[in-house]
C-alpha cells in the first residue's frame, strides 16, 4: 500500500508539473471567458447556454488531459524505460498499475477541481448579471454533472491503462483509447437504433449482428450514462437511483479493466 501511494504521489507530481497543463488550463479558461462574453447574445435561457458551455469546457479540457498528459504518464514510463527503475524497487506489477491509476486520477481531480472553481465563478458572475434568465438552474445538478465528467474521465483512464499494458507504444495506446472513447459516446445511439422497432421490422439487423451488438454493449463503456448535462442545463430532476447505478457501473468497469491490466502487466516483459 505504501508503495502504491508513493507511486501515485510521484505520478501526480509528474503530471501536475507538465507544461501542457498550462495550455489546457488556458484553453478552458478561454472557453469560460467566452461564455461570459457571449452570454448576452442569447435572448432567453442564458442559464442553459452557460451550463452547456461550462460542462463542455470541463469535458473538453478533461479529454485533453487524458489524451495528452495521462497517456504519457503511463506510456512514457515504458517508452523511456523509467519503468525498469521503478520495478527494480519492491513494487509488484499490479501495484504499479494501481499506483499509476491513483496518481493519474489524483492529477485529473485536482486539475478539474481547479477548472471547476473557475467555472463556478463564471456561473456566479452570470447569475448576478442576468438573474432573470436562470429559471431552472440548480447548483446541485450542475455539481452532479461536473462530478460525472470526472467519473467519465476515470473510466477513460482505466481504459488508457489497460491499453498501455498490452501495447508497446504510446501512439497505439492513444489510438485505441480514442477509438474506445468515440465508440463509448456513440454506442448508445447505435444500439438503440438497431434495437428500435423500425430496424427490426425490416430485418436489416440479422440475428448474429444483434448478438455482436449485445456483446459490444457489455464490452464497451457507455459514456452517455455519465452525461447529465441535459438535466443540469434544464434543471431537470436527477433520480438518486440513476446516480448510484452510474457510479456502480463506472466503478465496476474500471475495476475489471485495472485487474485485467494487472494480470497482463505481470506477464509482460520489458526489453
Amino acid at each position: 500500500m505504501r508503495s502504491v501511494v508513493a507511486l501515485a504521489i510521484i505520478t501526480f507530481k509528474e503530471g501536475i508539473r507538465n507544461r501542457a497543463l498550462f495550455g489546457i488550463g488556458l484553453m478552458a479558461l478561454f472557453l469560460l471567458g467566452l461564455n461570459v462574453s457571449v452570454a448576452g447574445f442569447f435572448m432567453r435561457d442564458i442559464g442553459k447556454v452557460t451550463v452547456d458551455m461550462n460542462l463542455s469546457a470541463l469535458n473538453f479540457a478533461g479529454l485533453l488531459l487524458v489524451f495528452f498528459v495521462a497517456i504519457n504518464l503511463m506510456a512514457k514510463d515504458i517508452d523511456r524505460k523509467t519503468i525498469h527503475l521503478v520495478l527494480s524497487k519492491p513494487i509488484s506489477r499490479s501495484q504499479y498499475v494501481w499506483g499509476k491509476y491513483g496518481g493519474i486520477l489524483l492529477f485529473l481531480s485536482v486539475s478539474l477541481a481547479f477548472l471547476f472553481l473557475f467555472s463556478c465563478l463564471t456561473i456566479a458572475l452570470l447569475l448576478a448579471l442576468y438573474p432573470d434568465y436562470f429559471g431552472a438552474f440548480s447548483w446541485g445538478q450542475f455539481v452532479v454533472a461536473a462530478t460525472f465528467v470526472l467519473v467519465k474521465l476515470a473510466v477513460l483512464t482505466a481504459i488508457v491503462l489497460f491499453f498501455s499494458t498490452i501495447t508497446t507504444s504510446s501512439l497505439v495506446t492513444l489510438i485505441f483509447s480514442l477509438g474506445s472513447y468515440i465508440a463509448g459516446v456513440t454506442i448508445e445511439e447505435v444500439v438503440f437504433y438497431l434495437k428500435s422497432d423500425w430496424a427490426t421490422q425490416e430485418r436489416v439487423v440479422s440475428e448474429s449482428l444483434r448478438t455482436v451488438i449485445d456483446v459490444l454493449s457489455y464490452l464497451l463503456p457507455n459514456f452517455t450514462v455519465f452525461d447529465f448535462s441535459l438535466e443540469a442545463a434544464h434543471g431537470l430532476p436527477i433520480a438518486f437511483e440513476r446516480i448510484v447505478l452510474a457510479l456502480g457501473y463506472a466503478g465496476g468497469y474500471s475495476a475489471i479493466l485495472l485487474l485485467l491490466a494487472g494480470f497482463i502487466f505481470a506477464r509482460r516483459e520489458f526489453n
Binding site: N222, L245, G248, G252
Partner: peptide, 19 residues
C-alpha cells in the same frame, strides 16, 4: 475479478435499461 465481472454484468444490464 470474477466477483467484479458478475457485478458488472448485472450493473451493465441495469444501466442499459435505465438509459
Amino acid at each position: 475479478l470474477v466477483v467484479m465481472l458478475g457485478l458488472y454484468v448485472a450493473l451493465s444490464g441495469a444501466v442499459w435499461k435505465q438509459q
